[in-house]
Amino acid sequence: MSTDAAHKSASQGGNGGDEHFEPRILVFCCNWCSYAGADLAGVSRLQMPPYFRVIRTMCSARVDPEFIMRAFQKGADGVLVAGCHPADCHYIGGNYRTRRRMALMKVLLQQFGFDPDRLRLEWVSAGEGEKFQKTIIEFTNTIKELGVSPMKGGE
């Protein structure tokens, strides 16, 4: 995707989104697959909307649900957790724990009043720079559509 196209699709932000809304998105990447995937996206100069910050953890299962709660408490508009594909985890079964936690986290966040789409889990391997780019663009669009986090802009 070219620079212009990537920025355009992200900045349009779907229907009804605030034109000037610059979301704050936190991305957790596991050390072995997704961080390398993000790195590949970077060195390949794939263009992405610049509204995300990456935190590297050793495994996606290291992302304690408390981290996600803290991100939302601090005003993050969206949280993306990226890990190795099933059957590909460096620690054999970390990602199986992760996806269970993320599924239940979505239910919990919904009970807290958040749109569950503010949390996303994606598998990104070390070779999938383009998937990382695509995920970031899609997720940024989702968050732009949802608007500012209810923790700061809501009630």
Binding site: Q110, F114, P116, L146, G154
Partner: peptide, 15 residues
Amino acid sequence: LLKRTVTEKKKKKTV
């Protein structure tokens, strides 16, 4: 950490 529930401005999706 969140202390209480919040309200999304827009209609939200359910799981």
